[in-house]
Amino acid sequence: MRRVPRVGIGGPVGSGKSMLIERLVPVLVRKGYAAGVISNDVISKEDADRIRATLSADCTVPGDLVVGLATGGCPHTAVREDPSMNLAAIEQMVRDHPELDIIIIESGGDNITTTFSPVLADYFMYMIDVAGGDKYPRKGGLGIQSCDLLVINKIDLAEHVGADLDVMRRDAVRSRGEKPFLFTDCRSNTGVDEVARHIIRDLLFDAPPGAGGP
C-alpha cells in the first residue's frame, strides 16, 4: 500500500486546530487534492463530528473521510509513543480511498512538548493562539521548537488580550531559527492560503493532485 503524505497538527485545546482544518481542507480540495482527516480527541469525538459536518455540508469531503479516535486521555501517546491506532485508521482510510493525496491528523492537549512520531506524520505543524499569552513562543517546548511550521492563530484577538505580535514574532525566530512560522486568523481565513502553500510545497513537493496515484 502506498504511503499517502500525512500532516500532523498538534497544539493546545482551543488554539483553533479544528477550525484550521475546516478552512484548510476546502482550499486543498479547490486545488484538486483529495484529503482525509483523523481527529484524536481527549474526551470525545466532538471535534471529528464538527469537522465532518462542516466539510460534508458542501460535499467537500465524504463523511467517511473524517475519523474520530478516542485516546483514553492520552492524545500525545496516540501520536508519538504508540501511534498504532492512528496507523490502523490511516490504513483503513487509504484502503477505502486510494485516491487520497493527503491525510491530516489532529491531536489536541495542553502539552507544549507534543510531537508526532515520524512514522505517523511526514510534516508536523504546531498551533498556538495569541489568547494563550504572547509568552508561548518564548517558552519553547519540543512542539514549538521542532515543528515544521508554527502557526500562531487568532491574531485578531491580540489587542483584546494584551498580546504583542512583535514579541511573538521575535521569540518565534529566537526559538525556531530559520524554520517558518505564520500568523493566522482562521475564522476570517487570514493566512490559511499561506498554510496550504507551505504544505503543498514542503510536504507534497508541489506535486499535482493524483500524482501518487491509487
Binding site: 496516540a78 509513543e81 504508540d82 498504532s84
Partner: peptide, 11 residues
C-alpha cells in the same frame, strides 16, 4: 504498557 498496541485507549 510501552508496547505499541494501542491498549492504553481501553478501559
Amino acid at each position: 504498557s510501552l508496547f505499541p498496541a494501542g491498549m492504553f485507549a481501553m478501559s
